[in-house]
Computed example of a mutant assay.
Amino acid sequence: MQKFINSIAASSGSPVSGASVQVNTWPAGAPATIYSDNGVTVAANPMTTDTNGAFSFYAADGHYQLVISGTNIQTQTINDILLVDHFPADLPTTLPASSGVVWNNGGTLSIS
């Protein structure tokens, strides 16, 4: 699972709030399952950018496509975004019971 964070800005540099961001699998183009946290809570897809033009989601490792659209926005499609979790697959994602154990704390290496 990897977190993707980005924002949308107009050519003037000002943030674009309220834009729709659809996350699809790539190259199939089917809507992807995305999460608001590290693989537990399914998030709405498409999502909407906040007042700063920002958006974020978690998704399983793989290739994705973003389709950005909205009022006064020319629809843009960004293909082949690769998400890769850099942590070992066998690294625990919950707080270990014993101390001194390294674990994946939502994308941050932590020691219990």
Results as ranks from 00 to 15, higher is better:
Gly106Gln: 12
Leu109Pro: 08
Asn38Pro: 02
Ile78Trp: 08
Asn45Met: 09
Ser11Arg: 09
Gln2Asn: 12
Gly70Asp: 10
Val102Tyr: 15
Thr77Leu: 00
Gly70Phe: 11
Asp90Ala: 15
Leu109Thr: 12
Pro15Arg: 05
Asn79Trp: 03
Val40Cys: 00
Gly13Met: 08
Pro15Ile: 10
Gly62Lys: 01
Ser36Val: 04
Ser98Gln: 14
Ser36Tyr: 07
Phe55Asp: 01
Ile8Ala: 06
Ile68His: 00
Thr75Phe: 01
Thr94Ile: 10
Ala28Val: 14
Asn79Cys: 03
Tyr35Cys: 09
Ser12Met: 06
Gly100Gln: 05
Asp37Val: 00
Ser7Arg: 12
Lys3Arg: 13
Pro96Ile: 10
Asp37His: 02
Val40Asp: 14
Ser12Asp: 15
Ala43Phe: 01
Thr75Asn: 08
Pro46Thr: 06
Gly107Tyr: 08
Thr51Ser: 15
Gly13Asn: 07
Ala54Glu: 13
Ala43Thr: 01
Gly29His: 11
Asn104Val: 03
Ser56Val: 00
Ser110Pro: 00
Ile8Glu: 05
Asn38Cys: 06
Phe57Trp: 11
Gln22Leu: 15
Tyr64His: 03
Thr25Pro: 04
Tyr35Pro: 11
Ala54Gln: 14
Gly70Met: 11
Phe55Glu: 07
Ser7Gly: 12
Leu82Ile: 15
Pro27Phe: 05
Gly39Val: 02
Pro96Arg: 03
Lys3Glu: 12
Asp85Ser: 14
Asn79Pro: 04
Ala44Phe: 04
Asp50Thr: 08
Ile68Glu: 00
Ser20Cys: 04
Ala97Phe: 10
Leu82Pro: 01
Thr77Ala: 05
Ser98Ile: 10
Ser20Val: 10
Thr108Ile: 12
Ser12Trp: 07
His63Glu: 05
Thr93Asp: 14
His63Arg: 12
Ile81Leu: 14
Ser98Gly: 09
Ala60Ile: 11
Ser56Cys: 00
Ala89Met: 07
Ala32Phe: 11
Val84Leu: 15
Thr108Gln: 15
Tyr35Gly: 04
Gln76Phe: 02
Gln22Met: 14
Thr51Ile: 15
Thr25Ile: 00
Asn24Asp: 14
Leu82Asn: 05
Ala10Asn: 14
Gly39Tyr: 05
Phe87Ile: 00
Val101Gly: 07
Ser11Val: 13
Ala60Leu: 14
Thr51Tyr: 04
Phe87Met: 13
Gln22Ala: 15
Tyr64Cys: 04
Val101Asn: 09
Phe4Asn: 09
Ile8Asn: 00
Thr33Lys: 06
Ser11Lys: 12
Gln22Cys: 01
Ile8Arg: 04
Ser17Asn: 13
Ala28Glu: 14
Phe55Thr: 03
Asp50Gly: 12
